[in-house]
């Protein structure tokens, strides 16, 4: 089966800012793909190019088998998008917003009314259906926007784009969105989402790409990425400043993994996979005489850790990383 999304050498600049620099992505049909990246990494730009809203400067992208530049209409017929910023009308009610979007996506009057009821129910907005959106809470508004993005018949929508769909949602709403995404994917729809949360990508995505410097810094299944780039972080607190220097020296000379030093608190963060065996090995390697480490704490890695770890490994060797 051909991939749902495929980009080769995709690039885009705004003025002198090179946002995307030869981006290559491949998303298989029916999978959930998460694009991770810090603010300004180019996630929204990527989504907008793939959703035919912005033209790339160079490279090619195909979505649902069609070129996003030369076969724009065909791509639009196969996708739906919920952007990062709300696209609902504040002074219309929730139901009016959904009905309008449903009518605009080609549903008949009765089909639009039925779809509106379904979506209101699914996103727990039935009670608020006849209230103007400006009276909604931030999370309700986000849910309505997501519902509007999913208004199209799932049978004909082959790729759904969600740009930071869960930013601003409470845990319950987030869970509901995750369920909706899984359901889409179970029906064979491909979901391409962006997020700032590693946990979300971890729970939801079949594959993840981390975006940085306009290209993919890493790509793989959540398990692969965690294996490769620190699933956990071990924070080591030194007994005193001299001990701290000895620890950082050992961490730097290849005995242990490269760490993140914080001289202020005499704490050194070291990536680990979190297994007892690895933690024990790390402690032994960094503190062979069992004299320098006073305390340690194990954290689940955040997106920050993956990033730090990625930039740490890639920056001295940017060129080889590109050859692959």
């Amino acid at each position: 089966m051909p991939p749902a999304i495929e980009t080769t050498g995709l690039s885009k600049s705004y003025g002198t800012v090179r946002v995307l620099d030869a981006l290559d992505l491949r998303v298989e049909t029916g999978t959930v793909f998460a694009l991770l990246g810090p603010n300004g990494a180019g996630k929204t730009t990527t989504v907008r190019i793939l959703a035919t809203l912005t033209a790339p400067d160079g490279g090619h992208a195909r979505v649902a088998g069609h070129d996003v530049v030369t076969e724009r209409r065909a791509v639009r017929r196969a996708i739906s998008l919920t952007g990062q910023y709300a696209a609902v009308d504040e002074t219309l009610t929730g139901a009016e917003n959904l009905r309008t979007t449903a009518r605009l996506s080609g549903l008949s009057r009765t089909a639009a009314a039925r779809r509106t009821d379904e979506l209101l129910d699914r996103f727990r907005l039935t009670d608020a259906r006849d209230r103007q959106v400006k009276t909604y809470s931030g999370g309700m508004r986000r849910r309505l926007d997501l519902a509007a993005g999913l208004v199209r018949d799932p049978g004909t929508t082959r790729v759904v784009f969600l740009d930071e769909p869960t930013t601003g949602l409470d845990p319950r709403s987030r869970q509901e969105l995750w369920d909706a995404v899984r359901e889409l994917s179970a029906h064979g729809t491909t979901v391409f989402l962006t997020t700032q949360y590693l946990e979300e990508a971890d729970r939801l995505a079949h594959r993840i790409a981390v975006l940085g410097d306009g290209r993919t810094l890493a790509e793989g299944t959540p398990a692969e990425l965690k294996d490769r780039y620190a699933g956990h972080r071990l924070d080591l607190t030194a007994r005193d400043p001299e001990a701290y220097l000895r620890l950082t020296a050992r961490a730097g000379d290849g005995t242990g993994a490269p760490g993140t030093p914080d001289p202020g608190t005499l704490t050194l963060g070291v990536p680990t996979d979190g297994t007892a065996a690895h933690v024990r090995a790390l402690l032994d390697a960094l503190d062979p005489h069992r004299a320098d480490i006073e305390r340690f704490a194990l954290h689940t890695a955040t997106l920050d850790d993956v990033f730090l770890s990625l930039t740490h490994r890639e920056s001295p060797a940017k060129e080889p990383a590109r050859v692959r």
């Binding site: 907008r48 035919t52 209409r73 639009r76 017929r77 990062q84 910023y85 696209a87 605009l104 993005g149």
Partner: peptide, 13 residues
């Protein structure tokens, strides 16, 4: 100015 026009455009309007 808002996301509305983006949604309309992806609906091929």
């Amino acid at each position: 100015r808002r996301g509305t026009v983006d949604r309309f455009r992806t609906l091929d309007i």
